[in-house]
Nucleic acid binder design. Structure first.
Length: 276
DNA sequence: ATGGCAATGTTTCATTGA
């Protein structure tokens, strides 16, 4: 009898060992056209399973779908000329289904959200508006847009317990996510109003994968191109991979790939990765 | 007090980003 239980246990252990590790990334590429060589290198080097891209600045007819397929990735995309644009890439062995562009019942001319299901995980790729300055028209748009996103995520979570929201949130959630909290206090990306909004996303039952783990201080995802911002590590942590409660037990790491910000023609954002 | 850098298209400057 005990042998029988041993076999059961062994089968269970093997099943756990075989459970695929998933690397899910968010990366604001600041022009997919310019960043394509770096993206292809990065895919080869890091082998992520799902990648949420922001600021592709790429019309759908010009999306490098074929090149990515040759590199081993399927893609779905929602773009426009000059500004914004989002896309989701998935390793070719995983079909991309239930693709949704934009937010239902919200006629937003800016392409900022795309969602798809990959390997049983509902993946929502977001590019939250920048907001420019508190009190500006663009700030109002940011806040209204975030309220719409909140409702969208609430509905999505009800339908898909295994949910990831990844992208450029343009919000540094806490002072420890800012290189100089006093200089940035109350400024765009760091204001209380924006931070309350970010916490309202978390209170839906989402977790900041980066903060599920012990992290070194002064870890950021964006650095200004000007004034040697990256060299001096004068950055902000504004790109995030949020995961739902159902995915939290299997999350084993949350990282920022600072290396990708180095070298020739980097994006001003580094990729953020959650490992599940 | 302002700009600094990078990308885009309205291109040799204005706009936007964060």
């Amino acid at each position: 009898m005990s042998f029988f239980f041993f076999v059961l246990y062994a089968l269970f252990a093997v099943k756990n060992l075989c459970k695929a590790i998933m690397k899910i990334a968010a990366w604001n590429v600041n022009s997919l056209n310019v960043r394509l060589p770096r993206l292809l290198d990065w895919l080869k080097k890091q082998s992520p399973d799902i990648v949420c891209l922001q600021e592709t600045k790429c019309e759908d007819i010009r999306f490098p779908h074929e090149v990515l397929l040759e590199a081993g990735y399927r893609s779905c995309f929602y773009g426009q000329k000059t500004y914004n644009g989002v896309a989701i890439l998935a390793r070719q062995d995983m079909p991309i289904t239930e693709v949704c562009c934009g937010i239902e019942d919200y006629d937003d001319p800016q392409a900022r959200v795309i969602a798809a299901t990959v390997a049983g995980i509902r993946t929502v790729c977001v590019y939250v508006p920048n907001g420019q300055a508190l009190g500006s028209e663009k700030f109002e748009y940011k806040m209204q847009w975030c309220r719409r996103l909140h409702r969208y995520l609430q509905e999505a979570l009800a339908q898909y317990p295994k949910l990831v929201v990844a992208g450029d949130f343009n919000i540094a959630p806490e002072d420890r996510d800012v290189h100089d909290p006093d200089a940035w206090r109350g400024q765009i990306l760091c204001s209380d109003e924006e931070r309350v909004m970010f916490r309202s996303f978390l209170s839906l039952g989402l977790f900041d994968s980066f903060r599920l783990f012990e992290q070194p201080p002064n870890m950021f995802t964006w650095w200004d191109y000007r004034q040697l911002g990256f060299i001096k590590n004068r950055g902000l942590r504004i790109d995030h991979v949020l995961i739902s409660e159902a995915l939290r037990p299997q999350c084993v790491a949350g990282t920022i790939d600072r290396e990708e910000r180095k070298g020739e023609k980097p994006s001003d954002h580094a990729p953020v990765v959650a490992v599940l």
